[in-house]
Design a protein around this nucleic acid. Structure first.
Lengths: 172, 172
DNA sequence: CCTATTGCAGATAAAATTTATCCATGATAA
DNA sequence: TTATCATGGATAAATTTTATCTGCAATAGG
């Protein structure tokens, strides 16, 4: 059981974008620089977040990414599912049917109990992830994080965010 | 987020071994046959279960595998950790430190809030897995499963289990 | 003792997935 | 018109997963 590295990058980027003011955007290259990541690869992940309607993208100069909705309404689960896919971690291969003795398919209409137990655990995992929002992450960082690191983050965002001409969604 | 196929095989095998009587064993080849799996690869997984003290192995003819303790005291978590490893699925790469502005390491003594939230979810996952024991799986199968399939499983176990000379652990 | 069966460790290889880079294209602000 | 930026596709490198094989140690049964 393993989560790809993209998840960490995606959450950090989304949290950073939560600090961007109004409908301003931040270029992908700036986000890559903020965390020392490969720009070309990070774009893939940002793209998945866009496809999942977690981020919005604005093309052209002064373009970039911003949150597609309020940070209060973006959970860690949203991000993890966008990056890792919506498939459950445990995939039942129905190997119970592969024995030497062939039994009629009607014997397997009830779902496999093992699968059920594994999926139940995964629901617990997802429920826990759904309890934390991006705004929780940001608030925790502002309150509990080191002031030096927090100030540096704020400065970085202020330096790289780009205001947009006309608003489309929520004007702060 | 993905679990290897070995987990499914391991749980099914362990559940099968839970039906073996007394201190009898069942050869790995028989378990592979029971689920249509590659014998040489399944042995790897059975071995991990042995290393984790979930199974015991007996060498020599009439040898094979059996549970190392009562099915009531083996949880799905035990098996998943034995196969997938004990590392958490989310591994924090501390990319928060990789920004262009270098900050003293003392700013990062507090753990990353994102990591904390992800680990919290994983604890929920593991707690849910720990709630289901092998005996739960077997009992559910006996009560809720199809009688034809259950009878076939019992017959298969009866045909392949091999009694041992002298007992070491629990004589049923 | 001898032999056949079985678990075990290690080397190896095939396949799939993840990670990463590059380039051509389209949008758009200046 | 130009420079900046997101997008999508093609591609490749790296890593992990899956799978097989071989030689070795243990042992029940003759």
């Amino acid at each position: 059981m393993k989560l790809g590295e993209g998840v960490e990058a995606a959450i950090h980027c989304a949290a950073t974008l939560a600090s961007v003011e109004g409908n301003s955007t931040m270029p992908g290259a700036a986000l890559a620089e903020a965390f020392g990541l490969s720009p070309s690869y990070l774009l893939k992940h940002l793209n998945m977040l866009s496809a999942a309607r977690i981020l919005e993208s604005v093309p052209g100069p002064a373009g970039g990414y911003r949150l597609a909705r309020a940070a209060e309404r973006i959970t860690l689960l949203d991000i993890v599912l966008a990056i890792e896919g919506r498939e459950p971690a445990f995939r039942c291969g129905e190997i119970r049917r592969n024995g030497p003795v062939k039994i009629d398919a009607s014997a397997y209409v009830k779902p496999c109990g093992i699968n059920a137990a594994m999926l139940k655990a995964e629901r617990a995992y997802r429920a826990a992830l759904a309890e934390t929002t991006l705004s929780d992450i940001v608030a925790d960082y502002a309150e509990e994080g080191d002031p030096r690191s927090f100030a540096a983050s704020c400065a970085f965002v202020a330096r790289h965010q780009r205001p947009q001409k006309s608003s489309s969604t929520k004007p702060a």
